[in-house]
Design a protein around this nucleic acid. Structure first.
Lengths: 100, 100
DNA sequence: CAAATAACTTTGTGAAACAAAGTTATTTGT
DNA sequence: ACAAATAACTTTGTTTCACAAAGTTATTTG
């Protein structure tokens, strides 16, 4: 059966699920790219990124050259694992209701 | 790509997603069955059921014999449709990240 | 030097999840 | 017949949280 308890609340929220999905799809999204892709306000986006970082799911890398900050965001190993487990739940929901 | 805007907020919340999944799996869940399966408090469960009903996604049927209330909850046609669209998004997330 | 840009922080509002306890009506046990 | 249990609520209160708007700091481009 479906283990709803496994539905990680940190990931499940719509905004953060969107972010996690994008970060899982390809590495190295910038703040601006995420903002544009998701249409979020700065405050909202940074808050979600902080929430994910606090959970240990994401980390930021600064492009070092002392130039204009161009932070990129990445999944950590823990973030990838947590997201995989989250996807397991999604898959089991879909498979339960749409057995092909 | 994935259309995150299509992620119906009414359905997406963890508790209601659980309820919708159960109701989509088989018809005629009683309040008690849902409560036990999901481990929710009465107040929380009825609130979610009301929210879903207000969206037109669920309806209740009273077992008519004037006996002890034995309400059962069901998806409406609109609820089924909305849930199918929600599942489309889940499927596209899973397929994007786990292409088999 | 001015304006723009990146990545924030701060502040405030409003909504919503959730639990606990109380309510009403019916039914079962003795 | 009366008490206890049960179903389906409602009410109340707490606490969290999403989200937007505006301000901040630092750097870079015109």
């Amino acid at each position: 059966m479906i283990d709803f308890d496994q539905l990680d609340k940190t990931i499940h929220e719509k905004g953060r699920l969107s972010i996690m999905t994008l970060l899982a799809g390809r590495a190295g999204w910038s703040f601006q790219d995420l903002k544009q892709e998701l249409g979020m306000s700065d405050g909202n986006l940074i808050t979600h990124l902080r929430t994910l970082a606090a959970a240990g799911y994401t980390e930021e890398k600064k492009d070092g050259t002392g130039s204009r900050p161009r932070t990129t965001y990445h999944l950590t190993a823990a973030g990838k694992l947590a997201f995989e487990e989250y996807l397991d739940v999604l898959e089991s929901i879909v498979k339960t209701l749409r057995p092909d």
